[in-house]
Amino acid sequence: MAFISVRDLTLEFTKYDEEGRAESSNKALDTISLDIEKGSFTAVVGMNGSGKSTLAKCLNGLLLPTEGSVNVDGMDTSDDSHIWDIRSKVGMVFQNPDNQIVSSIVEDDVAFGPENLGIEPAEICRRVDDALRKVGMYEKKDKPAHMLSGGQKQRIAIAGAVAMRPDCIIFDEPTAMLDPSGRGKVMEIIKELNAEGITCILITHFMEEAAESDRIIALKDGRIASDSSPIDLFSDARLIEELGLELPPAIELRERLGMDKCVSNIEDMADEIRGRAQQGRNSFSE
């Protein structure tokens, strides 16, 4: 069985009028089924209001399905007795770096999760140091969190999730409020964590970030509109338009160069172009 398995997940938000009667309801998610394998790196994309964040919150039981089920490592999120096990296995990093830091001091904040799990103090210290080293913030461990930049705060939030030693981390638009350098650093950390075996689910508006994943799930109006590898998704220019997305710069360039459809990120692209240039030079000198 897959690490996370979602079956016919439907989530309805009901609006109530002033007397508490149900006025209207709105399906934020509509019969979604998907499996996420251990160690994979999945990106979730879609326009505002397409249900990306709602889906993310269903995966660790912050929201419970109206219909259907979500299973994490064989545990149902609707089952109250497993909820803390599920949340310790599936960590989450949110969009706003300021609003998810609980404690004034960096290391105290990173320790918040492990403290909630009831881990021994010595082990917490080890985990906190370890997590801070992973995100490159160890030197700032005794600094006040509010003095850090947005990108640094977001790295602290990631360390807070990492310190709980989860199997999976969901990143809910972690770079949306960051400047380009902070964004690059956060993406780097996500890729490193994935390389170490942590299952990563990245919700994002930036297509160049989505292009780094193994698999992109595109949502539209609460339904899965496309579920494929980045290469396949970005090859379908019409679908991209339909979903209200845009091509990442590398793909745009590829299209304009008329190259074949086997590359989707900048590095592969550069290799390809370098290779071709080399080829061109060789044939010229012959």
């Binding site: 919150k57 660790n60 912050l62 803390w84 949340r87 310790s88 960590g91 989450m92 949110f94 706003n96 300021d98 609003n99 998810q100 609980v102 290391e107 105290d108 320790a111 918040f112 999760g113 492990p114 403290e115 909630n116 799990l117 009831g118 881990i119 021994e120 103090p121 917490i124 210290c125 906190v128 939030a157 807070g160 999730a161 709980m164």
Partner: peptide, 26 residues
């Protein structure tokens, strides 16, 4: 709004009150 965000982030980090909680620096 901030309080709501924070509550969600705390729940995602397994906060469930003071029982069964340990401290890093006893």
């Amino acid at each position: 709004r901030i309080a709501q965000d924070l509550a969600l982030a705390m729940e995602a980090r397994c906060y469930h009150g003071g029982s069964g909680r340990t401290r890093m620096n006893e």
